[in-house]
Write a protein that binds this DNA or RNA. Sequence first.
DNA 1: AGTATAAGCTAATAGGCATTAGCTGTCAAG
DNA 2: CTTGACAGCTAATGCCTATTAGCTTATACT
Lengths: 207, 207
Amino acid sequence: MNTKSRILDASLTLFSEKGYHSVSVAEIADAVGIKAPSLYKHYKSKRDIFDGILSEMQIRYEKQTAALQMNGSNPAADAGIFSSVSEDALIHMGIGLFTYFLHDDYVCRFRKMLTIEQFHDAELAALYTKQYTDDPLSYQSQILSMLSVCGLFRDAKPDIMALHFYAPLYLLLTLCDREPEREPDALCLLEQHIRQFNQIYKKGISQ
Amino acid sequence: MNTKSRILDASLTLFSEKGYHSVSVAEIADAVGIKAPSLYKHYKSKRDIFDGILSEMQIRYEKQTAALQMNGSNPAADAGIFSSVSEDALIHMGIGLFTYFLHDDYVCRFRKMLTIEQFHDAELAALYTKQYTDDPLSYQSQILSMLSVCGLFRDAKPDIMALHFYAPLYLLLTLCDREPEREPDALCLLEQHIRQFNQIYKKGISQ
DNA sequence: AGTATAAGCTAATAGGCATTAGCTGTCAAG
DNA sequence: CTTGACAGCTAATGCCTATTAGCTTATACT
């Protein structure tokens, strides 16, 4: 990996642990293994590094959501998967989303950084909301609405169902960001949550 | 209000907007209407101000939870309230908790500050988890378990029910911290969420 | 009345910060 | 072989920062 992206990588790590203002350029340079002034051969300012992270991560996000069609258009394919497999597939999807969010090196550090910086300006706030609230909710909402149209799931308001499905996942995610040692607990709770969610909303199963 | 607590108040506001490191003592002094060196007549360092906020807010929190018995022992009284009134009472409790968390001047600023500072050290992380995850969940869990023992609610795992009840509230809370203009949306979603929650878990009602 | 304490001020200090200037070596293209 | 771009370095600059020293004023106690 070249120096320019090593700088980005090191900065992301540091920013996600301490926040932009608490990290000095000397610290970043140290992590990369060069001296502070050398950073300016690659970025014109500290802020420029931050912006570099932002745009790099947005590109990654676009790619990822395009691949999962998570941004909007049609998650029909995903719904198709579930039309046969039911509960296990739902659990698989939840756990998969969770562990991806939690363990992907970039996604995880970037989320922490956004968490720390979200109140600094409206743009960062909007970005956080999009990536960790609105997009996941609308994605889940579309899938669940599809499943209820198919007659597999009860006919409830899809956005509320999505909230019921995603909010616990979100809460447990922020918990694990803060206290990674509680991940096993969180995974266990997540699985129970999805199981119960399925039991509640699935059609044709008595309870 | 005396100077010492005005300093605490101003600092809390600034820390909750920009984070500890991005705020200078001069800025704090300015907000209070004094000069920076005068701060040191009241606190021995900038860190001391931060610690002051921490202990002050922890005292407030203890008081509040003691009043609501939200910390542990017995939320029997609260459960008693619901034994007659059902859905509206549940909505009232949810909206009440939500608007308290969102609008109480101190609670709100302190939560934002903790959000920003949570990754700086384990103590702050633990405090956040306690106040915004573990305590609310165990409180809700106790109430809901009581309601299901009473036969009013379905006999499901109380901690999962609590997660289903509280997680959406938490997600919407963090959303409104970030984008206060979306509060009306959030309140509407919250009410629908609780209504559906009630419909799902309430016993003796067909669906 | 007199004195001590508290709470403000200005001026100063010392360290840290991001950034710039200007030098050196490396390596590929002409 | 030379030249020029690149990527590193050291040293320096100037600003910003937390904190201290030491002065002044007012209030409260004896």
